[in-house]
Write a protein that binds this DNA or RNA. Structure first.
Lengths: 237, 237
DNA sequence: CGAAGAAAAAAAATATATTGCTTATGAAAA
DNA sequence: TTTTCATAAGCAATATATTTTTTTTCTTCG
């Protein structure tokens, strides 16, 4: 007899435990660049800063290891996972492959809801400014979230939980690199690229949608690589 | 000085913390089916069983959450991640996609070392029996390891660290399901399937290699699904 | 007899103390 | 001046005790 088990998806209900709270704060701090790569994450320091017990910090850091946001060395604590150009290129390559698979499936299974969500996400994106702060330029957190939602909407019809999770994970990891492209953001019209993507999606033209999206990803990576070549942004190994 | 090595399969050198030890033991117990899906993992119980402190167990379990081997519910502890037919199908689909990408790249970048490693891995595989134990049939752990090495060898030339890591992770997750196909292993000649794969690899015939490998994966999945339909293998919620 | 509420037991989460590893600093010898 | 060894300090890792939360059971009332 076949028994289908419903997987309880109560992954996110308010941060109730201290460890979960610490996890979310530290994770966000790493993604936003508040903790720089290679920086040592001292447990006691974080514990007093977040006002939680050292055990909670320790657990939070442990959870970040499989996500590749921090690396741990037994008996020697935790450091923020390093960034490198080589890793960025590797990451981008993999993202392009995954994106292609997810988009192709999404188009195959597309329906009107899918189209509606894409249109809505793009519309929200247009209402956001990308960079805030004049002297100290920073990515607008609201834009970051909306942008993620836009790209998620495009692949949301792919019909695979795991593929969606993988897509989200890779997107998130690339977020760490995005902040580095701020200084050379000039020669680019991101809105046009997005509307091209939307056009292809609505036309259900899978191959051109994939091509356009991959170009979009590679353009960002190319800018970061160019920036890193000029300035010594990425710490040396 | 003579060193007596009594612990086999010590993978990485260096100091191992209790938490790391607990992590490895629990992980292996889940993968080998010693902890059944949906089973509650009581911290204190595991702590006395492994002779480590509860904190270490807690940390170990936390590290298994992102690997999707256990799920945690804040304030209510940890349980072994459930298995389901739907998830197996989802997992297999994703594996086929990833396998295709990795194999295509491997063939592109193939060299003589790659061929040699594949041949060596297949040869080792032939020397192993799949199932041990007569009345209580169990997968031969040596075969399991050799089989993993064989499939890793095929994609090892893909040139992407992340792709290799992803491949390994998906393979590992599917290992949890493999034990379920034991009872219906009959109508199959796995060695022939493997030698077909080797033939395609040495011929550098990427598309046929992919096709053959995907068939290989899907066959295993189909057997497990068939087994689950007849017997109530998958535990009930 | 069944349902609801309260109390007790069990287990998770947290805090604090202790141990032990790693590394840095300094002194002594080459 | 450089190298090496020893000692000390800092911090990760672990153990233990305490608090909080959840679950189960027992009692009481409908």
């Amino acid at each position: 007899m076949l028994q289908i088990i419903d997987i309880p998806a109560l992954e996110s209900e308010g941060p109730r435990s201290q460890a979960t709270l610490a996890y979310e704060v530290i994770r966000s701090d790493i993604l936003n660049g508040r903790h720089l790569p290679e920086r040592k994450l001292k447990i006691q320091e974080l514990a007093v800063e977040l006002d939680v017990s050292p055990g909670a910090v320790r657990e939070a850091l442990s959870r970040l290891v499989p996500e590749q946001l921090v690396v741990s060395r037994d008996q020697r604590g935790f450091v923020v996972a390093p960034l490198s150009i080589a890793d960025l290129i590797d990451l981008t390559d993999l993202r392009c492959e995954i994106e292609a698979v997810a988009l192709r499936r999404s188009v195959e299974r597309a329906d009107r809801d899918w189209e509606a969500n894409i249109l809505a996400a793009e519309h929200r994106l247009r209402g956001q400014v990308v960079v805030i702060g004049t002297d100290e330029p920073k990515l607008n957190p609201a834009w970051v979230q909306t942008h993620a939602a836009f790209h998620t909407a495009l692949v949301s019809a792919c019909g695979s939980r795991r593929l969606l999770a993988l897509h989200a994970q890779l997107y998130e990891q690339s977020e760490r690199y995005r902040g580095l492209s701020l200084h050379v953001e000039a020669p680019r019209n991101v809105s046009d690229e997005h509307s091209d993507i939307v056009k292809m999606a609505l036309a259900r033209d899978a191959e051109n949608l994939i091509r356009t999206t991959i170009e979009h990803l590679r353009k960002t990576t190319a800018l970061i690589v160019a920036a890193a070549s000029k300035e010594a942004i990425v710490p040396s190994a």
